[in-house]
Amino acid sequence: MTTSPFQVTSRLVKDVAIVYPRGYLNNLSGEYLVNECGRHAQAGLKKIVVNFHETDLINSIGISFLLNVMEDLQTAGGTLCFTEMKKVHLDTFEMLGLTKYFLFFPDEEAALTALDARKR
């Protein structure tokens, strides 16, 4: 299996960090995602949106790292939102019973609106 090099970037929208994993979330590079989210959490941001628009594959290793992100954020009392996740991945999360632990939105705007509404 060929894998694209996995990269993670992020940007801030007010008090929300939007994180962009790019490539396949299927190997130890998933640690980058954990670190990037951890970096924002340490900076005091409690709302993180992960945009999966450019993530074509999430396997068992990737799910392990996403759980890691979630656990870390839960410990910090934060909220994790996923957007633009492919249907096949969404179905997997649903089957695994994980949809009740993460907030899923079709796009960033919807996630930001929902997070803003929660604040109020």
Binding site: M1, G30, S60, I61, S64, F65, L67, E71, G97
Partner: peptide, 30 residues
């Protein structure tokens, strides 16, 4: 995923870490 990791050319430690993540991700264990 397990097969890919067991046969990969990664070094032994990376292979072990990957295998552990496969197990954790498969069973959703923290």
């Amino acid at each position: 995923d397990l097969g890919v990791e067991t046969t990969s050319e990664k070094n032994f430690q990376e292979k072990l870490d990957s295998l552990l993540h496969v197990v954790l991700g498969t069973f959703l264990a923290g």
